[in-house]
Design a protein around this nucleic acid. Structure first.
Length: 359
DNA sequence: AATGCGGGGAC
DNA sequence: GTCCCAGCATT
């Protein structure tokens, strides 16, 4: 059919471009070498809503420390969270560990090679299942991520806003998937979106699809895909309590497994609300000194302004409640502290009494 | 279909 | 400051 022929032609063009311009990324198998499903999976989980630049070092660190999925399954969740600290979306790390355990127990340590079976594993959704099936096993699935949504919306001039346009975009992308080299095609499409068909100022002049792009023909490519307007996010306030023992240990607490920063460590704090609590209650009675610095951090759905109160103690026991630990100052870098909490650490350590100069 | 869930780089 | 990134789980 003519329509089918057109699709093949378009796919061939993209693959030819990919052969000449593919990015060299740590998780990408070399030409002619079979990809390792573990490598593909690990990179895909890390890359969810996360830029290539942010992922690279974490990917190398994880692979070096846990060379196989069995090694990762044997690790403790605590060690996995420590290694993941700073990368964000910590449910990914918890699901990563759970998935590794399941692959070992249910699949004899080998990742399943179908989209359906992959989809049943924790942390693997529609996109990631299709991506692994295509990239690791060369199955003809369309892996539709943010890049592909943008490229499809432009090539086909889809003016329906996201997320309503997703079903149509998925159909359009699936229709382009070649029977052979589906994995290369998936990666080519993402490379195209990341390097040429960028959100702002797409470089249409060097795009392999510039001739057939309807969005470009209509002069609306850069304005696509359309999206619902964003609502602005509120600000929340809180107080973090920096408790330093006279031997240099700092009081930490593990957060609950579910919810924001789930399973990660924190400097104990008040709840984070629109207003500070009327009666501030620290981990225990003490004389507190308020730091001048306010730690600011922005999460997905709120800004946080965190004041830091300091105190010192000779108390060796832990406060009432679960999850508390004493950790020495010099060991904090090894803890599962998310970026916000590392800001608190930096602020607290910077606010030391100055040594008075002699003379 | 909406919402919760991090962090950082590019502009 | 805004936008958005190789999205998923839950409701």
């Amino acid at each position: 059919m003519a329509e089918q022929g057109l699709h093949e032609d378009v796919s061939v063009k993209l693959l030819a471009w990919y052969d000449a311009h593919a990015r060299d990324l740590p998780w990408r198998a070399k030409r002619g070498v079979k990809p390792d499903p573990y490598h593909v999976w690990l990179s895909e989980i890390m890359l969810q809503q996360t830029t290539v630049a942010a992922v690279k070092d974490y990917y190398i660190k994880f692979l070096s420390r846990w060379p196989t999925v069995s090694d990762l399954a044997k690790a403790s969740q605590e060690d996995v969270l420590r290694a993941w600290a700073g990368l964000g979306y910590y449910a990914r790390a918890r699901n990563l560990h759970a998935c590794a355990i399941k692959v070992v127990s249910d699949w004899n340590g080998k990742f399943p090679d179908t989209e359906e079976a992959l989809r049943s594993l924790p942390g693997i959704g529609p996109y990631t299942a299709a991506a692994i099936a295509a990239i690791a096993f060369d199955r003809p699935h369309a892996a539709v991520d943010g890049n592909v949504e943008r490229v499809m919306a432009r090539v086909y001039a889809i003016e329906t806003p996201l997320p309503a346009a997703k079903p149509l975009i998925k159909l359009k992308a699936q229709a382009l998937v070649p029977e052979k080299r589906a994995g290369d095609f998936a990666q080519a499409l993402m490379d195209l979106g990341a390097t040429i068909c960028t959100p702002r100022s797409p470089n249409c002049k060097i795009c392999p699809w510039t001739d057939e792009c309807k969005g470009r023909a209509l002069g609306i490519a850069e304005s696509l895909p359309r999206k619902a307007p964003k609502v602005k996010i509120p600000t929340r306030l809180g107080i973090a309590f920096w408790v330093e023992r006279d031997d240099g240990h700092i009081l930490l607490r593990q957060r609950p497994q579910k919810g924001l920063l789930g399973g990660m460590m924190e400097i104990p704090s008040t709840p984070w609300e629109a207003k500070l609590p009327r009666n501030v209650a620290g981990p225990f009675e003490a004389e507190w000194t308020k730091l001048k610095t306010t730690v600011e951090h922005t999460f997905t759905h709120f800004h946080l302004q965190l004041n830091v109160w300091k105190t010192t103690t000779t108390e060796m026991s832990l406060p009432d409640g679960s999850g508390y630990r004493w950790v020495h100052k010099d060991e904090l870098t090894h803890e599962a502290l998310p970026s916000l909490m590392r800001k608190v650490v930096v602020a607290a350590l910077a606010d030391r009494p100055r040594l008075r100069k002699a003379g």
